[in-house]
Design a protein around this nucleic acid. Structure first.
Lengths: 215, 215
DNA sequence: GTCTATAGTTAGATAGAC
DNA sequence: GTCTATCTAACTATAGAC
């Protein structure tokens, strides 16, 4: 853990005395979420952090580097943890339960990840995929598809194209985070109520999927 | 139908003689999809259209106007058609079938819509929602939620929070289109194979949902 | 480390010839 | 309608004082 971050912690509770570096990171996260990478302005990040624009470059050299730091610090934890789940022993039902709960839990703490991933994958599909996704994923998707296919063949789950099932699991986990601003307005729920809905999704999604695929 | 478009058609097959306006629209769609609104460059659109940058402004005055034209021409058709489905008579199962098939069919023809909607809803949530979504949606979401709630109460479907069910239906329909560049790489499928998967989703999604919610 | 001032670049938009 | 050339504004990034 970084020294300044450690100094700013009392027990497990971070207190609000943030140095410039932390203020920049927090502000940048918010602006990148609101505007995307191309739409974000260094000036706006500086304003929101309450510091000068030149300091951004002093700490992070460039907009691109700043983005990378923010992205890697949180995305770096997500994929390895998720990939691991399908390597562990257990039934497909247990794995789906663990995966959906883990995904929603982690992303609730870093809700900007899915938006970043989707905007980056459109900006530069091949480089992004090869840099961030493929190394962590390796042959995992094939393994998962294989596990689904075998389960279907053995009658443990209903017949279903494994690729459709993979898309369904991902859709149900990811979509609420990327569509949140629209969903909240459509469903008339405030921030607290939406967090509550996400909380309930940790189990609701896996129940939904399991009902759908069990014979 | 616009005169130039009519002239460019033979029967139902559009031929490739496009005037500048059409070339610009086609190019702009592609660039806006790849780069988003903020990341798109008028120069890049001009290059891809094979015409000069000044001509963009001659036809569409500004980048913002150009985007609006492209967006409205296709998005304008989508929501009314979908909203109508839950007004028509039929069981919840029939409505879900009609909705998912209609959504996937229409969006397969205009695959950029979901990406546009998501980027716009993040850029300017309130204005976008009030301009494009709310007028078409009105109280429809409440009505749908009500229909789901009643069906659950009557035991026609399993007990489920109607808002979760709405999110699930939307997730399964929309996500594959916004995550397409990543999904194709993860699943190792080319464009043709992915279109085939989407084609199969027209029925696969509603089957999946109905299995999940039927008692 | 933090600021002001400014350099250097690029993008959207327009003027004007043809 | 279409082009070349240019204006103007905005942005990233750096230089240099404190």
């Amino acid at each position: 853990m970084h020294l300044t971050k450690w100094l700013n912690q009392v027990g497990n509770t971070e207190i609000s005395i943030e140095n410039a570096e932390q203020k920049i990171l927090t502000a940048a996260r918010n602006v990148f979420i609101r505007k995307g990478f191309a739409g974000a302005r260094m000036q706006e990040i500086a304003d929101e952090a309450g510091i000068n624009k030149a300091l951004l470059h002093y700490y992070f050299r460039s907009k691109e580097k700043l983005f990378e730091v923010i992205f890697k610090e949180s995305f770096g934890k997500l994929l390895p943890e998720l990939a691991d789940i399908f390597q562990q022993p257990g039934s497909v039902f247990e794995k789906i339960e663990r995966f959906t709960e883990a995904y929603i839990s982690i992303v609730m703490e870093h809700p900007f990840i899915p938006v970043f991933v989707l905007s980056e994958i459109h900006r530069n599909p091949d480089e992004f995929f090869d840099t961030y996704i493929r190394p962590e994923l390796a042959g995992n998707i094939q393994i998962i598809a294989q596990q689904f296919a075998v389960a279907a063949q053995q009658g443990i789950i209903r017949p279903i194209d494994p690729r459709q099932l993979i898309m369904n699991v991902m859709s149900l986990c990811v979509f609420p985070f990327v569509a949140r601003p629209m969903l909240q307005r459509m469903l008339h729920v405030n921030d607290a109520a939406f967090m509550q809905l996400l909380q309930e999704r940790k189990t609701a999604v896996s129940q939904f999927i399991i009902q759908a695929i069990k014979p």
